[in-house]
Design a binder for these strands. Structure first.
Lengths: 115, 115
DNA sequence: ATAGATATAAAGATCATCTATATATTTATT
DNA sequence: AATAAATATATAGATGATCTTTATATCTAT
């Protein structure tokens, strides 16, 4: 069995995707709202540039991990609300577990600095 | 006060650097040995391509976070051994703490999937 | 003598984010 | 009524760190 290489750019992509999917667990949200919630809930640590966020949302939608639907909000305003698909829930569960393992191994090595 | 943006490429760079510095805490090592230890200690999860590892070592050396010294090993073989500098130790402490906060916030959001 | 493992190095390709810009609506201010 | 600021989505192009590939050389086992 060939062990997969640590593909950091891929991991960071998955990190962002996991974060966005996780925020969508408790109901549908539009992009801007989603970015604000991630920032709030992380104490200001995680922030998405709009130029980063929207392409990721489009990618997730294309991969059918989320489903987007335009909704009339005011007399003219359109907002696109996203919901998790069942594939998205599955992806989320798998990747949260992977990240848990990832962090465990990291502190297994880097934890030596403290105590 | 302007909050810094989440700069993922920068974070992954710092992740790799932190991992390498952490492995050097318990004594000097040469590049190849360092890569093997990271792989072993992480249960095969973290692997560095050589084309990734050596540029990082050169960068860390240039930034004086590690110090490299060539050492005659066999009759002809040269190996470059790296040791942590005091600046490197400081960098390591700061970044391990940052990663701990990072992971805490991540699971604060993504932990909802379990339990 | 040869092959495979060990060891370091660097050039160029890849690819996801980041910066900057564009467009439009809603709300608050004057 | 006019203007500014906040809200909201979108995309093109620049950036930059890793990844792939290739080069070079030594040591060990067969």
């Amino acid at each position: 069995m060939i062990k997969p290489q640590l593909d950091i750019p891929l991991l960071t992509k998955q990190f962002n995707e996991t974060l966005i999917l996780a925020i969508l667990v408790d109901g549908k949200k539009h992009g801007y709202q989603l970015a604000l919630e991630i920032e709030e809930k992380s104490g200001g640590l995680f922030r998405f540039n709009h130029g980063t966020l929207y392409p990721i949302l489009h990618r997730l939608e294309k991969e059918k991990l989320i489903r987007g639907a335009w909704k009339q909000e005011g007399p003219k305003r359109q907002r696109k609300y996203y919901t998790l698909t069942s594939a998205g829930k599955k992806y989320l569960a798998v990747h949260v577990a992977q990240w848990r393992e990832f962090f465990t191994q990291f502190f297994n090595i880097a934890g030596v600095i403290e105590g």
